[in-house]
Structure formats: structure tokens, C-alpha cells
């Protein structure tokens, strides 16, 4: 019937997660790093949906609903923090916030 899209979806989820993880380390702008984190979250969402499709239950989708909500809240708070940081240091370079150094 409908082709098995679950396996490819999982592979896609994996690829997006890996790319997101790479981005967290390679980018120096905080906001860009944040966006890569959101990318990773979306990859996880995809995995949930795929498994939900595979098992035929709706729990996966409900979980995605929640992940979505939490991601939104997290984004709001995180960006507020970034704004505060930028006001303090006048830069958005990740490496500039090293006050917890030895």
C-alpha cells in the first residue's frame, strides 16, 4: 500500500541531528548555535512521528506537541537571556562569555 516511509524518515532524522550537532560546535554566534539546537529538536520530533506511524499509536504525536510547546518557551527565555548577555558584553561571540574560567 503506502510505501514504507518510516525507515527513510529515521535516516533523515539521524542526518538532521548530526548536522545540528556539528553546527553547535562550529558556529560562533550564539543565536546561530541556538538555531542549530532547534534543528536537533526538530530531528527528534521527526523520529517521534515516524515511530508513531510505525506503531499506530498517537502517543508520539502528543509528545511532539509537548516538545513543540516547550521549545517555544525555551526559545523565548533563551533569546531573552541572549539579549541580556549582549547588553553586558556587547558581543554575541560564544567564546567571549568565559567568566567561569579558572
Amino acid at each position: 500500500m503506502s510505501p514504507d516511509l518510516v525507515q527513510p524518515a529515521l535516516v533523515l532524522s539521524l542526518a538532521l541531528f548530526a548536522i545540528g550537532a556539528l553546527g553547535v560546535f562550529l558556529r560562533r554566534n550564539i543565536i546561530t548555535v541556538f538555531m542549530c539546537v532547534e534543528l536537533m529538536l526538530n530531528a527528534v520530533n521527526l523520529a517521534f512521528i515516524a515511530f508513531s506511524r510505525a506503531r499506530g499509536t498517537l502517543d508520539g504525536q502528543v509528545l511532539v506537541f509537548f516538545v513543540l510547546t516547550v521549545a517555544a518557551a525555551e526559545a523565548a527565555v533563551g533569546l531573552a537571556i541572549i539579549i541580556a548577555l549582549q547588553r553586558g558584553r556587547d558581543t554575541l561571540d560564544v567564546d567571549a562569555f568565559d567568566l567561569l574560567k579558572w
Binding site: F25, L99, L100, K101, W102
Partner: peptide, 13 residues
Amino acid sequence: RTLQTGLVRGYAL
């Protein structure tokens, strides 16, 4: 204590 570089990316790594 030199492990504490203060760099977030290092910790994430």
C-alpha cells in the same frame, strides 16, 4: 582546574 576553560563549546564537546 585548567579544565575549567569557561568556554561553553568546550563543555558541550
